[in-house]
Computed example of a mutant assay.
Amino acid sequence: MNAGEVEPGTVRPGGRTARVRESVLRAAGDALVEQGFDRLDLADVARRAEVGKTTVYRRWSTTAGLVADLLSDMAEQSVPRTDTGSLDEDLKANARLVVRTLTDARQGPLFAAVIAAATCDARTAEALHRFYQVRVAEWAGCVDAAVERGELPAGTDAHEVIRAVSAPLYYRLLASGDPLDESVADRAAETAAVAARAGVYVN
Protein backbone atom coordinates (compact mmCIF):
# COMPACT_ATOMS: atom_id res chain seq x y z
CA MET A 1 0.00 0.00 0.00
CA ASN A 2 1.38 3.42 -0.94
CA ALA A 3 1.78 6.27 1.51
CA GLY A 4 -1.54 7.95 2.12
CA GLU A 5 -3.60 4.94 1.11
CA VAL A 6 -5.94 3.40 3.65
CA GLU A 7 -6.73 -0.26 4.07
CA PRO A 8 -10.39 -0.84 3.15
CA GLY A 9 -12.51 -0.88 6.28
CA THR A 10 -10.14 1.17 8.42
CA VAL A 11 -11.77 4.60 8.02
CA ARG A 12 -13.85 5.46 11.07
CA PRO A 13 -17.50 6.30 10.42
CA GLY A 14 -19.45 8.92 12.28
CA GLY A 15 -23.12 9.59 12.98
CA ARG A 16 -25.68 6.98 12.03
CA THR A 17 -23.21 4.94 9.96
CA ALA A 18 -21.68 3.86 13.27
CA ARG A 19 -24.74 1.67 13.86
CA VAL A 20 -24.24 -0.05 10.53
CA ARG A 21 -20.57 -0.64 11.32
CA GLU A 22 -21.45 -2.11 14.71
CA SER A 23 -24.02 -4.49 13.19
CA VAL A 24 -21.70 -5.60 10.39
CA LEU A 25 -18.72 -6.16 12.67
CA ARG A 26 -20.85 -8.17 15.10
CA ALA A 27 -22.11 -10.28 12.19
CA ALA A 28 -18.57 -10.72 10.87
CA GLY A 29 -17.40 -11.91 14.27
CA ASP A 30 -20.26 -14.40 14.48
CA ALA A 31 -19.46 -15.73 11.01
CA LEU A 32 -15.75 -16.07 11.83
CA VAL A 33 -16.52 -18.04 14.98
CA GLU A 34 -18.97 -20.32 13.21
CA GLN A 35 -17.28 -20.83 9.85
CA GLY A 36 -13.69 -19.58 9.92
CA PHE A 37 -11.96 -17.06 7.69
CA ASP A 38 -11.87 -19.24 4.57
CA ARG A 39 -15.68 -19.28 4.45
CA LEU A 40 -16.21 -15.66 5.42
CA ASP A 41 -18.42 -14.07 2.78
CA LEU A 42 -19.43 -10.41 2.55
CA ALA A 43 -22.91 -11.26 1.25
CA ASP A 44 -23.48 -13.61 4.19
CA VAL A 45 -22.26 -10.95 6.61
CA ALA A 46 -24.67 -8.43 5.06
CA ARG A 47 -27.55 -10.89 5.47
CA ARG A 48 -26.65 -11.53 9.11
CA ALA A 49 -26.36 -7.80 9.81
CA GLU A 50 -29.59 -7.06 7.93
CA VAL A 51 -27.96 -4.40 5.77
CA GLY A 52 -27.68 -4.08 2.03
CA LYS A 53 -24.94 -6.02 0.25
CA THR A 54 -23.88 -2.91 -1.65
CA THR A 55 -23.29 -1.12 1.67
CA VAL A 56 -20.94 -3.86 2.84
CA TYR A 57 -19.11 -4.21 -0.48
CA ARG A 58 -18.73 -0.44 -0.86
CA ARG A 59 -17.43 0.13 2.66
CA TRP A 60 -15.25 -2.93 3.28
CA SER A 61 -14.50 -4.16 -0.25
CA THR A 62 -12.84 -7.42 0.85
CA THR A 63 -13.04 -9.93 3.68
CA ALA A 64 -9.51 -8.91 4.68
CA GLY A 65 -10.64 -5.29 4.97
CA LEU A 66 -13.59 -6.37 7.08
CA VAL A 67 -11.39 -8.38 9.45
CA ALA A 68 -8.97 -5.45 9.68
CA ASP A 69 -11.83 -3.22 10.81
CA LEU A 70 -13.04 -5.89 13.23
CA LEU A 71 -9.60 -5.99 14.85
CA SER A 72 -9.48 -2.20 15.02
CA ASP A 73 -12.85 -2.21 16.76
CA MET A 74 -11.66 -4.86 19.21
CA ALA A 75 -8.65 -2.69 20.05
CA GLU A 76 -10.92 0.32 20.56
CA GLN A 77 -13.19 -1.64 22.89
CA SER A 78 -10.39 -3.19 24.94
CA VAL A 79 -10.19 -2.43 28.65
CA PRO A 80 -7.62 0.27 29.53
CA ARG A 81 -4.59 -0.88 31.48
CA THR A 82 -4.62 -1.08 35.24
CA ASP A 83 -2.47 1.29 37.30
CA THR A 84 -2.14 -0.10 40.84
CA GLY A 85 1.29 1.35 41.62
CA SER A 86 2.75 -2.17 41.80
CA LEU A 87 4.43 -4.01 38.93
CA ASP A 88 3.29 -7.39 40.23
CA GLU A 89 -0.33 -6.34 40.53
CA ASP A 90 -0.34 -4.56 37.17
CA LEU A 91 1.10 -7.58 35.35
CA LYS A 92 -1.30 -9.86 37.16
CA ALA A 93 -4.22 -7.69 36.04
CA ASN A 94 -2.93 -7.85 32.47
CA ALA A 95 -2.59 -11.63 32.54
CA ARG A 96 -6.04 -12.11 34.08
CA LEU A 97 -7.59 -9.87 31.43
CA VAL A 98 -5.96 -11.96 28.70
CA VAL A 99 -7.25 -15.18 30.27
CA ARG A 100 -10.78 -13.78 30.64
CA THR A 101 -10.73 -12.79 26.99
CA LEU A 102 -9.36 -16.09 25.72
CA THR A 103 -11.79 -18.16 27.78
CA ASP A 104 -14.82 -16.05 26.91
CA ALA A 105 -17.41 -18.08 25.01
CA ARG A 106 -17.30 -15.70 22.03
CA GLN A 107 -14.01 -13.83 22.27
CA GLY A 108 -11.87 -16.95 22.65
CA PRO A 109 -13.05 -18.64 19.44
CA LEU A 110 -13.00 -15.28 17.65
CA PHE A 111 -9.33 -14.69 18.50
CA ALA A 112 -8.47 -18.24 17.48
CA ALA A 113 -10.24 -17.74 14.12
CA VAL A 114 -8.51 -14.42 13.45
CA ILE A 115 -5.10 -15.81 14.35
CA ALA A 116 -5.71 -18.77 12.05
CA ALA A 117 -6.72 -16.39 9.27
CA ALA A 118 -3.54 -14.38 9.77
CA THR A 119 -1.44 -17.42 8.91
CA CYS A 120 -2.79 -17.47 5.36
CA ASP A 121 -3.73 -13.85 4.60
CA ALA A 122 -1.12 -11.10 4.67
CA ARG A 123 -3.53 -8.21 5.23
CA THR A 124 -5.21 -10.00 8.11
CA ALA A 125 -1.77 -10.66 9.58
CA GLU A 126 -0.93 -6.94 9.32
CA ALA A 127 -4.19 -6.03 11.05
CA LEU A 128 -3.53 -8.56 13.80
CA HIS A 129 -0.03 -7.17 14.31
CA ARG A 130 -1.46 -3.65 14.58
CA PHE A 131 -4.01 -4.86 17.14
CA TYR A 132 -1.32 -6.33 19.37
CA GLN A 133 0.96 -3.33 18.94
CA VAL A 134 -1.86 -1.17 20.31
CA ARG A 135 -2.55 -3.48 23.26
CA VAL A 136 1.12 -4.04 24.14
CA ALA A 137 1.81 -0.31 23.96
CA GLU A 138 -1.16 0.35 26.27
CA TRP A 139 0.13 -2.02 28.96
CA ALA A 140 3.81 -1.17 28.51
CA GLY A 141 3.12 1.97 30.53
CA CYS A 142 2.92 -0.04 33.75
CA VAL A 143 6.43 -1.38 33.12
CA ASP A 144 7.79 2.08 32.35
CA ALA A 145 6.23 3.31 35.59
CA ALA A 146 7.91 0.45 37.48
CA VAL A 147 11.28 1.51 36.04
CA GLU A 148 10.64 5.07 37.22
CA ARG A 149 9.77 3.79 40.71
CA GLY A 150 13.01 1.82 40.82
CA GLU A 151 11.27 -1.58 40.76
CA LEU A 152 13.02 -2.55 37.54
CA PRO A 153 16.46 -1.86 36.04
CA ALA A 154 16.87 1.13 33.76
CA GLY A 155 16.69 0.16 30.10
CA THR A 156 14.06 -2.54 30.62
CA ASP A 157 12.17 -3.16 27.38
CA ALA A 158 8.58 -2.62 28.51
CA HIS A 159 7.06 -4.13 25.38
CA GLU A 160 9.04 -7.35 25.81
CA VAL A 161 7.87 -7.70 29.41
CA ILE A 162 4.22 -7.41 28.37
CA ARG A 163 4.73 -9.91 25.54
CA ALA A 164 6.30 -12.31 28.03
CA VAL A 165 3.17 -12.17 30.17
CA SER A 166 0.75 -13.13 27.42
CA ALA A 167 2.92 -15.51 25.36
CA PRO A 168 2.41 -18.61 27.55
CA LEU A 169 -1.32 -17.90 27.70
CA TYR A 170 -1.67 -17.84 23.92
CA TYR A 171 0.46 -20.98 23.74
CA ARG A 172 -2.12 -22.78 25.88
CA LEU A 173 -4.96 -21.50 23.70
CA LEU A 174 -3.40 -22.33 20.34
CA ALA A 175 -0.93 -25.15 20.91
CA SER A 176 -1.06 -27.19 24.10
CA GLY A 177 -4.75 -26.95 24.92
CA ASP A 178 -3.89 -26.89 28.64
CA PRO A 179 -6.37 -25.17 30.97
CA LEU A 180 -6.45 -21.39 31.23
CA ASP A 181 -7.47 -19.92 34.58
CA GLU A 182 -6.44 -17.24 37.08
CA SER A 183 -3.71 -19.38 38.61
CA VAL A 184 -2.11 -19.79 35.19
CA ALA A 185 -2.46 -16.05 34.61
CA ASP A 186 -0.84 -15.21 37.93
CA ARG A 187 2.06 -17.58 37.28
CA ALA A 188 2.71 -16.01 33.87
CA ALA A 189 2.72 -12.54 35.44
CA GLU A 190 4.99 -13.59 38.30
CA THR A 191 7.45 -15.26 35.93
CA ALA A 192 7.67 -12.16 33.75
CA ALA A 193 8.13 -9.93 36.79
CA VAL A 194 10.94 -12.08 38.20
CA ALA A 195 12.72 -12.12 34.84
CA ALA A 196 12.30 -8.36 34.46
CA ARG A 197 13.76 -7.69 37.91
CA ALA A 198 16.71 -9.92 37.04
CA GLY A 199 17.46 -7.73 34.02
CA VAL A 200 16.46 -10.27 31.39
CA TYR A 201 14.67 -7.61 29.34
CA VAL A 202 17.25 -4.84 29.58
CA ASN A 203 18.30 -3.66 26.12
Score class of each variant (00 low, 15 high):
Arg96Val: 07
Arg19Ala: 12
Arg47Gly: 05
Asp90Leu: 05
Arg39Leu: 12
Val79Lys: 13
Thr119Leu: 14
Val67Glu: 12
Pro13Phe: 09
Thr82Cys: 08
Arg100Lys: 09
Leu87Ala: 04
Ala122Glu: 15
Arg81Ser: 06
Ser23Ala: 15
Asp41Arg: 02
Thr62Lys: 08
Leu102Ile: 01
Asp38Arg: 09
Gly29Trp: 06
Arg26Ile: 01
Val99Gln: 07
Gly52Asn: 08
Ala116Leu: 03
Arg19Gln: 12
Ala43Gly: 12
Pro109Tyr: 12
Glu126Ile: 00
Ala105Val: 07
Ala125Ser: 11
Ala46Asp: 10
Ala127Gly: 09
Asp121Asn: 15
Pro80Asn: 08
Asp121Glu: 15
Ala31Met: 13
Pro80Tyr: 11
Met74Cys: 01
Cys120Pro: 00
Ala64Gln: 05
Val79Leu: 15
Leu66Gly: 03
Leu97Gly: 12
Arg21Ala: 13
Ala93Ser: 14
Ala31Tyr: 05
Gly85Ala: 05
Gly108Lys: 06
Arg106Ala: 07
Asp41Gln: 02
Ser61Gln: 15
Ala31His: 11
Ala125Ile: 00
Asp30Gly: 01
Arg81Tyr: 10
Leu40Tyr: 11
Ala43Gln: 12
Glu89Arg: 14
Thr54Arg: 15
Met74Asn: 02
Ala112Val: 04
Glu89Gln: 15
Leu32Met: 13
Ala46Trp: 04
Ala75Val: 01
Thr84Glu: 13
Asp121Arg: 06
Val20Ala: 15
His129Phe: 11
Gly14Gln: 07
Ala118Glu: 05
Ala117Gln: 06
Ile115Glu: 13
Phe111Gly: 01
Val45Pro: 10
Asp38Pro: 00
Gly52Ile: 02
Lys92Phe: 01
Asp90Trp: 08
Arg106Ile: 01
Asp38Val: 02
Thr54Trp: 14
Asp104Glu: 03
Val20Thr: 15
Ala68Gly: 06
Ala112Phe: 07
Asp90Phe: 08
Gly29Asp: 09
Thr55Ser: 14
Gly108Arg: 05
Ala46Met: 07
Tyr57Ser: 10
Asp41Ile: 00
Val33Ala: 14
Ala75Ile: 01
Thr54Lys: 14
Arg19Pro: 00
Gln35Gly: 07
Glu34Asp: 14
Asp38Phe: 00
Val33Asp: 10
His129Val: 04
Arg130Phe: 06
Asp30Ser: 08
Ala28Lys: 02
Lys92Ala: 11
Phe111Leu: 08
Thr54Pro: 02
His129Ser: 12
Gly14Pro: 00
Ala122Lys: 08
Gly52Gln: 07
Asp88Cys: 02
Glu76Phe: 07
Arg19His: 13
Ser78Pro: 01
Glu50Cys: 03
Val24Phe: 05
Ala64Asn: 04
Arg48Met: 05
Phe111Ser: 07
Arg19Asp: 14
Ala112Thr: 12
Gly108Tyr: 10
Thr119Pro: 00
Leu66Ile: 03
Asp69Thr: 04
Arg26Val: 02
Ala49Arg: 07
Leu71Arg: 04
Ile115Leu: 14
Leu128Tyr: 12
Ser86Cys: 04
Gly29Lys: 05
Thr119Glu: 15
Pro13His: 06
